[in-house]
């Protein structure tokens, strides 16, 4: 596909030959044409991702002085992020909550993905749409619906009370890390199901038949063929859930209560109520690095493990 218009007619032989040479290079080099076509997307993404990130790194070395920002270099924000016990506790809690949520989501979603991949033969498309549909509806409303269900006067408590099963509302339901985990697991279920389903669907069925012919039982077939071959999907699912849930602040703010607040809530507060942007930038970068480190270590470990299995 040529993008340049055809070189114009007679005159200016020198320029024409230069142009022709460029055009020849352009047509010959697939990579050049590819990158020309890719450049609008690449430039927008790179510019809109990198520039804010660089400015945020710069700002994390500055200091908030009242309403002004002192732009002299200092590491104080990072010092505070490491020394301040609250940040460490919140970071640890964020990792715990989203780690538990990731594990729970993958565990409950695997059988579902397995069912659709192996046991649904008609209307597969319908099942896939059914599984992923809630994911595309408003996140805020889904979190809010859990607040309705788990609340002090919510559906569970008021329902049990109306049935005469309890006298006092169960207080542990809302405003706890458990509520955050349940809500997040529900909200991100589709991110677990799709990658796992895709990796299960790709498994060559003749492998399973061969194993059956060679006398392997159903459990053995699952453990030695299906599970190892679906691990890439499981790993992708855990990463796709872990990363956004670590940084979520809507769910903790709505259903978490004081004991369910996460690091993202304090970052949000630095840009709002507390109004200490440089500190917020330092915390955001700390979070990014911790998340990246955890993810990379996880990928490294799972690579080692899957290499051993295979």
């Amino acid at each position: 596909m040529s993008i340049e218009a055809t070189a114009s007619g007679e005159g200016m032989p020198e320029r024409k030959s230069w142009r022709r040479r460029f055009r020849a290079l352009f047509l010959r080099s697939e990579a050049l044409r590819g990158y020309t076509l890719l450049s609008p997307t690449m430039l927008v993404m790179a510019f809109a991702m990198c520039l804010p990130f660089i400015v945020m790194v710069l700002m994390s070395f500055w200091t908030q002085k009242g309403f002004d920002i002192d732009t002299s270099f200092t590491l104080n924000n990072y010092q505070e992020a490491i020394d301040g016990p609250i940040y460490e506790a919140l970071l640890f809690r964020s990792l715990m909550i989203s780690g538990t949520c990731t594990l729970a989501t993958v565990l409950i979603s695997y059988p579902m993905a397995y069912y659709v991949a192996f046991h649904v033969h008609k209307r597969k498309l319908l099942w896939i749409i059914l599984m992923t549909l809630p994911f595309w509806t408003s996140y805020l409303l889904r979190v809010f619906s859990w607040k309705i269900i788990l609340g002090y006067n919510g559906a569970i408590n008021s329902g049990l009370k109306a049935l005469g099963l309890i006298d006092q509302p169960l207080e542990f339901l809302l405003y706890s890390p458990t509520a955050v985990i349940i809500t997040l697991a529900h909200a991100w279920a589709a991110f677990a199901i799709l990658p796992i389903y895709v990796s299960l669907e790709k498994i060559d069925r003749s492998l399973l038949e061969a194993a059956a012919d060679l006398g392997e039982g159903p459990v053995g077939r699952f453990l030695r063929i299906t599970l190892p071959l679906s691990l890439p999907g499981v790993i992708a699912a855990t990463i796709m859930i872990f990363i956004p849930t670590v940084g979520d602040y809507v769910t903790p703010a709505l259903v978490g209560g004081p004991n369910g607040l996460m690091l993202a809530n304090i970052i949000e507060a630095q840009f709002g109520r507390i109004n200490n942007w440089p500190m917020g930038a330092a915390l955001a970068i700390t979070m990014l690095f911790v998340v990246a480190a955890v993810t990379l270590i996880y990928i490294w470990i799972t690579r080692k493990l899957t290499a051993r299995i295979a």
């Binding site: 809109a48 991702m49 804010p52 990130f53 400015v55 945020m56 700002m59 990363i243 956004p244 670590v246 940084g247 979520d248 602040y249 993202a264 970052i267 949000e268 840009f271 942007w277 917020g280 930038a281 955001a284 979070m287 990014l288 998340v291």
Partner: peptide
């Protein structure tokens, strides 16, 4: 995480 992109763009 969305919050990091959000605050970076805000800054």
């Amino acid at each position: 995480p969305g919050i990091i992109m959000g605050v970076a763009l805000l800054i």
